[in-house]
Design a protein around this nucleic acid. Sequence first.
DNA 1: GAATCATGAGAAAGCGTTTTCTCAGAGCGT
DNA 2: ACGCTCTGAGAAAACGCTTTCTCATGATTC
Lengths: 348, 348
Amino acid sequence: MGRGHMARRNTNRRVGIADVAEKAGVSHATVSRVMNGNAAVDPGIAARVRAAAAELKYQPNPVGRSLALGKTDTIGIVVPDLANPTFQAILRGLSIAAAQDGYRVLIADSSEVTSEEAILAGEARRRCDGVVLCAPRMADAELEELAPTLHPLVLINRTTIATNTPSLSVDYGQGIQELAQHLVSLGHRRLAFLSGPEHSASNRQRLVGLDQFRAEHPEIELQMLHGGSNFDSGHESTEAIIASGATGILAFNDLVAMGLLSGLHERGVRVPEDISVTGFDDIPFAKYTTPPLTTAAVPINELGSLAWRRMREQIQQAGEATTQAQDEFSPRVEIRKSTAAPALTPAS
Amino acid sequence: MGRGHMARRNTNRRVGIADVAEKAGVSHATVSRVMNGNAAVDPGIAARVRAAAAELKYQPNPVGRSLALGKTDTIGIVVPDLANPTFQAILRGLSIAAAQDGYRVLIADSSEVTSEEAILAGEARRRCDGVVLCAPRMADAELEELAPTLHPLVLINRTTIATNTPSLSVDYGQGIQELAQHLVSLGHRRLAFLSGPEHSASNRQRLVGLDQFRAEHPEIELQMLHGGSNFDSGHESTEAIIASGATGILAFNDLVAMGLLSGLHERGVRVPEDISVTGFDDIPFAKYTTPPLTTAAVPINELGSLAWRRMREQIQQAGEATTQAQDEFSPRVEIRKSTAAPALTPAS
DNA sequence: GAATCATGAGAAAGCGTTTTCTCAGAGCGT
DNA sequence: ACGCTCTGAGAAAACGCTTTCTCATGATTC
């Protein structure tokens, strides 16, 4: 206990601005000025200070700076599950883009525990200059209440009623319709949707899209099967899928599709000859499955970098509560080898 | 400019300890004591303070705390490439384990730029209480010089001469030998190693392992082919692999193996009938390739959580420079369907 | 040559906490 | 009833930095 103070006169104390000041024979203020190049400093003195700093290998303490400046040059990101390639890609894009502007990212993985998300986001916000929030299952009401307290905030795949929170979203409803359309145009008449987590916002969007599809294609059979969002849930649905009799399967996402592909392969069901399968997201692995997966491509890398751009805009115009961009991406159907015309069956 | 100060009397100032103190009619010191439960405080006053804090929704400013306490409750991790599933898994394991102890993780992606790694690590260290470093290509000399300055440090897949830096490593040499052995026991006589990045430490370990393998199996042909560490490099090596005439391929890692699998499939080469392929790492996708990939399983999830445990040990025993654990994992060969006995060929 | 001005360095306040130091008052023994 | 210890609260210093404020010095102008 008392570390902070006791360590003060210790030998192993980090070198601070005061040491540089002493060595250069000037005040801390001057050292600060030189380091930040804010005010004019006599070139001779500046050189002396720089020499002293270099010799002592002085590096300003970021915590002290943060306190004085009221900013941390760090943003936080809250994700529900870091095991999901989609969030990995967003994190990566965000991190790289932010780094280019000298910002770092702090990560908070809510491990799918919805009730923790608000708390994590709040904590992240207090430590950072802004937060990127991915909370697909958070209740609308909670989000609405939380958003203003997080202010420099960027939402992924969610929107708020207030228009001053930028959001990036993907039109899942549109994408899933196009995939269904693709299957129909190949000749499929019996489709099945292997749905994702029940309370997921993006799953709801897919369902809405499929309702619309049904309305436009009353002649097509479309079954709904419950599933999850990962490999294993896709794998576990194999039997149900086979039992459904559907020839065209819309999997919730690429992970589910991959699990299913593997399950079907084990059971000797050929893809796409016997059954066509589509994914969603176009994760990097999708083109390397066997057969390569037909999917709806989400510009997963852009998402992260655009999130940063929106964040930066807010950080820069600190204050002026302008209305913020709501970006929506339309997925592009990527046709590969996991879909084909169904085998000829006796017309029922 | 001057934001910090100008905003002081602004309306939108964050609620601080002073506000709570005023509302409760006590001093900041007392509020701090109540919030941290350090010293004894009259129960009545404590209740008043807590009520005031709750009413104002007071949350202590972590930056102020960090400055006073000399710790940030954050650790940094530097990785060469966040697109690599191995590092994603480490990051995830680390983040989850650290979160359980109330720590957060700050990420720094060096984007494979070796020259940036030392700088990034230094910056991360200054903002955090410790650093986990994954720098497979950093020169030994540089690492040796850098390590002491980073002190609470955990190395992944690297070691230093000084024994006071804990490190977690995987015995790639052993793993690759076992894979080669597996292929030989299936009957393969012509093998090829599709190597990874030239300066990667783990690639060197594999090469050393293979040298040993060669010594023990002079009758086996083992070719060396240059490659990279990702899908595309595996895919691009397809022709070279076919041309090599080898029947058993040791890919640098699972990603490379997957790229290769896909390339071979396109070329109509059957796996494992015509060629057997092995990967390395056992990333989650490995069991879902077609055919499922035989690989050397690295306990990828444990790596992250163990890294945290080692970090925590150092943070707790701040000071006493004891010698630290050097953990080495032996990969376990995971036999799946991408390897089988070679087709019978005329004995040469 | 004196008054004015620009330049630039040091002193000090401030950022939001924690912790030591100090001291008032309560409780106790004799 | 006096002095002692003990409890607990406020004042103030400290953490490491930035920035305003202040003022000395030397340059400029009439």
